[in-house]
């Protein structure tokens, strides 16, 4: 358990990267890229976690002395999620246009840029 969460994060990043490298469909590659990014969410939130601590929101009834988990990593992850969605949108837009111009979305068949 000591490092299991971090290992899962690292695994997600590598699994996603392998997905891109082996991909035969750019849509698939784009989603695999978002798996890489989900590894960063898991890592950040795990780093900020504390056993027996509450969520960092002092709603009514929660005394302000309650120990809470790290809010900074959560703020970073929020930013990260929005970044992920927007980059995915851009990549999908590029993919749609590639399909229109090349008639395929298989990276093996895109043979324009060489050398």
């Amino acid at each position: 358990m000591q490092v299991y969460a971090y290992a899962v994060a690292g695994w997600l990043a590598l699994a996603g990267a392998l997905g891109i490298a082996r991909s035969h469909n750019l849509v698939h590659a784009v989603v695999a890229l978002s798996v890489v990014q989900s590894g960063t969410y898991v890592l950040l939130l795990s780093v900020g976690y504390q056993w027996e601590a509450a969520a960092p929101v002092f709603a009514s009834g929660v005394p302000v002395t309650t120990p809470v988990v790290d809010p900074v990593v959560q703020a970073m992850t929020l930013t990260d999620i929005v970044v992920s969605a927007t980059v995915t949108a851009l990549l999908l837009a590029l993919t749609i246009q590639i399909e229109k111009r090349f008639g395929t979305v298989d990276p093996d068949e895109l043979r324009k840029l060489k050398g």
């Binding site: 299991y4 969460a5 899962v8 695994w11 997600l12 699994a15 996603g16 392998l18 997905g19 082996r22 991909s23 035969h24 469909n25 849509v27 698939h28 989603v31 695999a32 798996v35 989900s38 590894g39 898991v42």
Partner: peptide
């Protein structure tokens, strides 16, 4: 964590979009 790890792997290695 395990569920997330397995599901993430499945997403990355499912080649039909």
């Amino acid at each position: 964590l395990t569920l997330v790890g397995v599901a993430g792997t499945a997403v990355a290695w499912t080649f039909d979009p």
